[in-house]
Amino acid sequence: EEERTFTNEEEARKAKKEAEKRGLRVTVTKDGTTWRVRIG
């Protein structure tokens, strides 16, 4: 499991799409101005 943080919503969405392409489970949460993308 890996967690990545982004300040840019577009980049967070891109990371989510890429992980889904690899067949991984992805959770995206917004924490104030930060987007957290949890993969795995």
Score class of each variant (00 low, 15 high):
Arg25Met: 09
Phe6Asn: 00
Lys21Leu: 13
Glu1Gly: 13
Arg36Leu: 12
Glu10Ile: 10
Arg36Trp: 08
Asp31His: 09
Glu1Thr: 13
Thr7Arg: 07
Lys17Tyr: 14
Asp31Phe: 08
Asp31Glu: 12
Thr29Asp: 05
Ala19Asn: 03
Arg13Phe: 15
Arg22Ala: 10
Val26Tyr: 02
Arg25His: 12
Val37Lys: 00
Glu20Ala: 05
Val37Ile: 08
Ala12Tyr: 06
Lys14Ala: 13
Lys21Gly: 12
Ala19Met: 12
Thr7Met: 10
Lys17Arg: 13
Lys21Gln: 12
Gly23Lys: 03
Lys30Ile: 08
Lys14Thr: 10
Asn8Pro: 01
Gly32Ile: 01
Thr7Tyr: 11
Gly23Thr: 01
Lys17Phe: 14
Glu20Asn: 04
Lys30Trp: 15
Gly40Trp: 15
Arg25Gly: 03
Leu24Ser: 03
Lys16Met: 15
Lys21Ala: 14
Thr29Pro: 00
Thr29Leu: 09
Thr34Leu: 15
Arg36Val: 15
Trp35Asn: 01
Leu24Thr: 02
Leu24Trp: 07
Glu18His: 06
Thr5Trp: 14
Lys16Ser: 10
Gly23Leu: 03
Arg38Met: 11
Arg4Glu: 06
Gly23Asp: 02
Arg13Lys: 11
Thr29Tyr: 13
Thr7Lys: 07
Glu18Arg: 05
Thr33Pro: 14
Glu9Pro: 06
Glu3Leu: 11
Val26Asp: 00
Ala15His: 08
Phe6Asp: 01
Ala15Met: 09
Ala15Ser: 04
Arg22Tyr: 08
Val28Lys: 00
Arg38Gly: 04
Glu10Phe: 11
Arg38Asp: 04
Gly32His: 03
Gly40Ser: 14
Gly40Met: 14
Ala15Asn: 03
Thr29Asn: 04
Thr29Met: 09
Arg25Glu: 07
Arg22His: 08
Gly40Ile: 15
Asn8Tyr: 04
Gly32Leu: 03
Glu1Ala: 13
Thr27Glu: 07
Lys30Arg: 11
Lys17His: 13
Thr27Met: 07
Lys30Tyr: 15
Gly23Phe: 04
Glu10Tyr: 13
Thr27Ala: 05
Val26Leu: 02
Glu3Lys: 03
Phe6Tyr: 12
Glu11Phe: 04
Thr33Ile: 10
Trp35Val: 03
Arg36Met: 07
Lys30Phe: 15
Gly23Gln: 03
Gly40Val: 15
Lys16Leu: 10
Val26Arg: 00
Glu20Asp: 04
Arg36Ser: 05
Thr34Val: 15
Lys14Asn: 12
Phe6Met: 02
Lys16Gly: 13
Glu9Arg: 09
Glu1Met: 14
Glu3Thr: 11
Lys14Leu: 12
Asp31Thr: 09
Val28Met: 14
Arg13Gly: 06
Arg13Gln: 13
Val26Gly: 03
Glu11Thr: 04
Thr34Gly: 09
Thr7Trp: 09
Thr7Asn: 10
Arg4Ala: 07
Gly32Pro: 01
Arg36Ala: 04
Glu1Ser: 11
Glu18Phe: 07
Val37Ser: 00
Asn8Met: 05
Trp35Leu: 03
Gly23Glu: 01
Arg13Asp: 10
Glu2Met: 12
Glu2Asp: 08
Leu24Glu: 04
Trp35Phe: 05
Lys14Ser: 10
Glu11Ser: 06
Asp31Met: 08
Ala15Arg: 03
Arg38Phe: 13
Ala19Arg: 01
Gly32Phe: 02
Phe6Ala: 01
Ile39Trp: 07
Asn8Ser: 13
Thr7Ser: 10
Gly40Asp: 12
Phe6Lys: 00
Lys17Gly: 09
Thr33Phe: 12
Arg13Asn: 13
Glu2Trp: 15
Ala12Ser: 02
Ala15Ile: 06
Val26Lys: 00
Glu18Asp: 10
Val37His: 01
Lys30Glu: 05
Thr33Met: 11
Lys14Tyr: 11
Asp31Gly: 02
Lys30Gly: 05
Trp35Glu: 01
Asn8Glu: 06
Leu24Ile: 05
Thr33Asp: 15
Thr7Asp: 13
Lys30Thr: 14
Ala12Lys: 00
Glu11Pro: 01
Glu11Arg: 03
Arg13Ser: 09
Arg22Ile: 07
Thr33Ser: 12
Glu1Lys: 08
Thr5Leu: 12
Val37Trp: 02
Thr33Tyr: 12
